[in-house]
Design a protein around this nucleic acid. Sequence first.
DNA 1: TCCTCGCATTAAACCGCTTTAATAAATTTC
DNA 2: GAAATTTATTAAAGCGGTTTAATGCGAGGA
Lengths: 342, 342
Amino acid sequence: MRLGATIKDVAQKAKVSEATVSLVLNNKANVREETRQRVLKAIQQLNYHPRHMARGLASRKSGNFGFILTDDHFSRAEPFYTKIFLGIEFEARKYNYYILLTTVPRTFHPDTDLPRFLRERNVDGVLLAGHIPQALCEHLLTLKMPHVFIDFSPRHKQGNVVMMDNLLGATLAVRHLIELGHRRIAFIGGDITHPSIAARLEGYKKALTEAGLPIAEELIESVESYTASADGFRAAAALAGRAAPFTAIFAANDAMAIGAMQFLREQGRAIPADVSVVGFDDIEAGMHTQPQLTTIRVDKEELGAVALRRLVEMIETKKELPGKVFTPVELVVRQSTAPPPA
Amino acid sequence: MRLGATIKDVAQKAKVSEATVSLVLNNKANVREETRQRVLKAIQQLNYHPRHMARGLASRKSGNFGFILTDDHFSRAEPFYTKIFLGIEFEARKYNYYILLTTVPRTFHPDTDLPRFLRERNVDGVLLAGHIPQALCEHLLTLKMPHVFIDFSPRHKQGNVVMMDNLLGATLAVRHLIELGHRRIAFIGGDITHPSIAARLEGYKKALTEAGLPIAEELIESVESYTASADGFRAAAALAGRAAPFTAIFAANDAMAIGAMQFLREQGRAIPADVSVVGFDDIEAGMHTQPQLTTIRVDKEELGAVALRRLVEMIETKKELPGKVFTPVELVVRQSTAPPPA
DNA sequence: TCCTCGCATTAAACCGCTTTAATAAATTTC
DNA sequence: GAAATTTATTAAAGCGGTTTAATGCGAGGA
């Protein structure tokens, strides 16, 4: 009994058939209240928990969701995706799903790199985050597997996407600089092909335009293909090399902001006295820089939780959920921003 | 066919029984080479992949491993556990296991916080990392569930533990300082009840003793119960408050080292000119500090991979594997260490 | 009173694989 | 060449649930 009461034991104890127990287990209709109580009591007494595998086999559902990341994203320094995962996993408990987390290489090839849970059809749906290779997106469609993208929207379609509000966040960041009095604000961002980064650039432009400021191409540096701190360093260097003056930098993410700050410091430019810097993401490291980084905060756990709920809904209703959902962002003013030098 | 050839289809196509296909699938003995080839060909042609759930049900094995972390550890800034996870997951693919990752609160209570996969017996074994609550350790024993601890050994037993070589690492770090000429070396570390931290303190003492240096209690600060950067800041402050002079700090982990550096900087003490600092773990953030942190590198992926292999071995041999296994560590000299001021 | 209908319950088939025990085939032994 | 072994193959019984179709039963309608 200790290691494994089965539905049979419960049925016997409650003096009903296994089918009835199953009905109770799944909250199905047409069970008399008295019977239900009797079954529930037996379940409790026997400390019964249905075997996940038996259920899965019989119902042709796995009770699992896959969570796919690109390897370079997941192992990044800041725990951005870790937090998303935590949000997902925590939410998944409420719906009785397990999460199978795996990574795919950026050089994804369907024959060799397809996650095992997709081959074995061991998941009922998948969540995807990071810069997911196009080939994988396409393959997913052929599998007719319900899926939700997190912080990424593939080129070929618009639906089933959960994002943070990149456009708004970037706008808030740049407005903040403008309100401080900055007029020559630079943008640095890597991997501009990533939709989130692109949206942040757009927000940057939007805030400038709103304020009646010109958009100067020579103040925009977005050629890097990655978004690590070293890329921020290089981007800032490229910017400085152009001799187009600026009093503030808006970096498309904190890691690059930190790299940029490092470059500025090495150049002897004080932050925020000479140059203000704003990041995006609110990663831990931004709190440990000198000065602490002003940034846009994103609720990563919520991002994951929302995505999971959407996936569950898609499966329950058997419908695609059109459109994007945005989770909120927030400006966090710390020490890296100040009015421009007089 | 596209979505789901079964063993039956394979059997028909290869003109053998389902049992034979199963034998081939599981690499069992006593199947003629010619037959095997015929089956393999059919499998290939049908693009057959056995259903994970059906297998699990029939064989009474889940094909899953659980990976349990405490929530506060996993969401930490540095991707320490993320890297361990990656090592585990990657290795798990070789053995055809899925990893179910979950977190438990530090205030673990078996009735409410027991991971679902343990209740439902949906894993064949578990890996545990972080400061796992005693109550969970004990519960695990009652379940007779094979398990391996990573970077943590519970109080009640010695076996099934994979650790980085904390003692050696700490010794290397402190020896490095001694070789540079330091004589008054402080130790800061939080959560001294964590075996890894304790071992690092021991390594610190060992290196001093080897060199014939005294162990001064007033240079040891290990009262913090957490190991974040803010704790390092406080620990350094406590140390400074004692007015016992020191020219170097060995921090039990990088996060605390970074916090300590921040404190020193605020006190106007230059690193490494006035004070040298060595950390432990080699987290990303340590490369972005000013100056870059000298530290002890740990191969986290390898830690996870080794643990996974041990777990597989335990299950295959049905034996406990006595003793601890250590994975290597390495001194990485960067810019935060130098000879003491003259 | 007899029939029909809706609700509660259950018998039995099934999900897709593994495994045991029995059978068939091949090989060795004498 | 027949008996004794060994090796290869398979029929059939699970694994522990879900689900379909059938059954029993009391209430309302004719």
